[in-house]
Structure formats: structure tokens, C-alpha cells
């Protein structure tokens, strides 16, 4: 199964270091913001993307996360609220040789930009989308977002929200994304690995990054980031491996029909062979919905890692192929053909 992980064969002659990807603009996120870590991990992994710097484009919308392109020493486009995926689609389709990344947030991509997000997923446009999910509107100073937990008290929900949040993993999967993953700002190694793998995916890659906003939603992910609680609350998805968690990996997830249950491997009744084994190449999205639900069930660990990846022709590749076959069939169009191929007549 491992051989399905496609390695990018083009390696630029130039050897980059993370510094090469750092622009000369001062980074202006709040001290302690999770965005710093995401930026650092992207800059660290960028030399391994196998792309020349001038072929990389970072596109964003509006929000704290969307300042990201300014700090990357690549081509960058800071767009307007919600439209990053649409702008990025235009860049990618116009020039499929470019590697196009999107930096966005929960408000930007899942609220005002929701339509562009689901359609980019559906079309499988070869974009890499990094969703910085902090479950809050930060730049507008603390209103609830479409991923805020139900009941969350914010400036625009002083009595607690009454709306239900989006689950980004399930949403992306439902919309047809061909690479769906989650990582955490505070887990740099894991984040690097996931970013690196997304860069190699040929199709739309979606990464939800749990990101802490120290100002307006501090500690929202503390269960999955703090040393004391992390082991009991995070399950790392690894292809071909059983779902185990806990400080000594003595807890597992097994399936009871279509429902996941937590089992204790030391209770004498269960063993590791009872555990659900992760298969990230399973094209059946049911597995992702099942894993994606963990965060909706109290007491369940949060899965991080690649939920699913499979290959399906991307929009930009399909389009190029269509153009190529038409050029092959009809030849490259000329001005004379364009203007004179329908009924014409001469006035002498």
C-alpha cells in the first residue's frame, strides 16, 4: 500500500533552506499566536516541495491567517474576504505549472468563502489549502466563527452560541477533496510531515490546522496540545497501523457495527487486533466520516494525520488534456480560421 504515496520526481537543481522562504517583511501576528508555528513549519518544509521558489504562489483571503503570503518569499496574493480559493483557482488554471497554496481561516474559508471551498474540492483543482482553524474571528476581535463550539461565549454570543459548528474534515470530504488531513500548531514535527505530504499530492489537498488564538480563544485546543492531557486526547492516524492512544498506547478504537468504541487493551478482554486499522487510501469516504465524528463525541480522542488520500484526475490536468487533444485534432487555431470559418462574403 505504501507505494501509493507518490513522490514528486522533479527536484530543483537549487537547494533551498528555510531562510530562502522568509520574506523581508516583519511578521505582525500577536505574540504567542499559533500562526508563527505554522509559518515556521511551512518555511522548514518548503525546500522539500521539489518546486522552484518562483513557481510557488501563496494566495489568501482576509483574516489573521491571510497575512501569511506576505511572510513567504514566494509569489503571493493577499485577496479579499473568502475568495482565496477562487483567486487561486484562476492562478492554477491559467498556469498549471505553478504550485498554488492557499492560507485561510475558519471564517474566511468556511463562512464567507464556503461556496468557493466546496467547489474547489468538488472540481479537484490542484490547490493545497491550509485552514488555520482557531474557532474564532480574530482580526475583527472576537466574534464566533462557523467552527466555534456550540454554546461558546464570544463577543457576538454573550449568552453562548446556539448554532452548530462545521466539522471541516467532514465538509471537505463530503465536497470531494482528494487529500484530507489535520494537524496542530503545537506539534511541529507532525505538522511538517502533513504539509510535506500535501505538497506531493496531485489534486486538492486540504489540511485543517488547529491553531490557538491567545487573545480571543486561548486554550481552545489545550486538551490536545498540553503535555498532561495530550496523550489521552489525540489519536495519530498512520496508514496501516491500529488506532491507539493514551500515554502508553493502551487504549484503542474498535468498531461496533458502524460505531466507534473506545477499548482498554489491558482489560483482558481486548487486544490490539480488535483495533481499527487506518487505511488512508480507502476511497470510501465512510471511514473519514467515522473518524471525523470523533471530535463530535465527548470523550473521544481527536484524530490527527491524513484521513484520506486518493487519486482522481485534477481539474487543471483534465482541462489541459482536453486542450491538447483538440489541438491535436484541429491544429492550433489561427486568426484567419477564427474570423473566416463561418459564412463570409466579399464586397468588391
Amino acid at each position: 500500500m505504501e507505494n501509493k504515496i507518490v513522490e514528486n520526481s522533479i527536484t530543483p537543481a537549487v537547494k533551498y533552506t528555510s531562510k530562502d522562504f522568509s520574506s523581508d517583511i516583519d511578521v505582525k501576528w500577536c505574540p504567542g499566536c499559533g500562526d508563527y508555528s505554522i509559518l515556521a513549519q511551512v518555511q522548514r518544509t518548503s525546500p522539500d516541495f521539489g518546486e522552484l521558489k518562483e513557481n510557488m504562489v501563496w494566495v489568501s483571503g482576509i483574516g489573521c491567517s491571510s497575512r501569511f503570503p506576505y511572510y513567504m518569499n514566494t509569489y503571493g496574493f493577499h485577496g479579499i474576504h473568502g475568495r482565496a480559493a477562487a483567486i487561486a483557482s484562476g492562478v492554477k488554471i491559467a498556469n498549471p505549472k505553478l504550485q498554488v497554496w492557499v492560507a485561510t481561516g475558519d471564517g474566511d474559508m468556511l463562512s464567507i468563502g464556503g461556496n468557493h471551498f466546496i467547489h474547489a474540492c468538488r472540481k479537484n483543482i490542484n490547490l493545497k489549502i491550509l485552514l488555520f482553524n482557531n474557532k474564532i474571528y480574530g482580526l475583527t476581535k472576537g466574534q464566533y466563527s462557523p467552527t466555534s463550539d456550540k454554546g461558546q461565549v464570544t463577543k457576538s454570543s454573550p449568552h453562548g452560541t446556539v448554532d452548530w459548528p462545521f466539522n471541516a474534515i467532514k465538509l471537505a470530504t463530503g465536497a470531494g477533496a482528494t487529500f484530507v488531513a489535520r494537524s496542530i500548531d503545537r506539534d511541529p514535527k507532525h505538522l511538517q510531515e502533513v504539509i510535506s505530504r500535501a505538497s506531493k499530492h496531485k489534486g486538492l489537498a486540504f489540511i485543517e490546522v488547529y491553531q490557538n488564538c491567545p487573545i480571543f480563544n486561548d486554550g481552545v485546543y489545550s486538551l490536545v496540545t498540553e503535555k498532561e492531557t495530550k496523550a489521552d486526547n489525540v489519536v495519530v492516524l498512520e496508514h496501516g497501523k491500529p488506532l491507539l492512544f493514551g500515554p502508553k498506547k493502551t487504549k484503542g478504537i474498535k468498531l461496533d457495527g458502524m460505531n466507534p468504541v473506545i477499548i482498554d487493551l489491558e482489560d483482558g478482554k481486548h487486544s490490539i487486533s480488535d483495533c481499527l486499522v487506518h487505511d488512508e487510501f480507502d476511497e470510501n469516504p465512510t471511514r473519514v466520516f467515522l473518524l471525523g465524528r470523533f471530535t463530535d463525541i465527548p470523550g473521544f480522542p481527536t484524530p490527527i494525520g491524513v484521513f484520506r488520500q486518493f487519486s482522481k484526475p485534477s481539474y487543471d490536468k483534465e482541462y489541459e488534456a482536453q486542450v491538447e487533444s483538440l489541438v491535436k485534432k484541429n491544429g492550433k487555431g489561427t486568426y484567419e480560421q477564427l474570423m473566416l470559418s463561418s459564412n463570409t462574403w466579399e464586397v468588391r
Binding site: E54, S60, P69, Y75, F77, H78
Partner: peptide, 11 residues
């Protein structure tokens, strides 16, 4: 984009 040495950001 694609032009070496002209990496820049707009918005």
C-alpha cells in the same frame, strides 16, 4: 509567477 527573482506579494 514563474519569473525567477521577481517573487513579490500584492493584495
Amino acid at each position: 509567477p514563474g519569473t525567477p527573482g521577481l517573487e513579490h506579494r500584492i493584495g
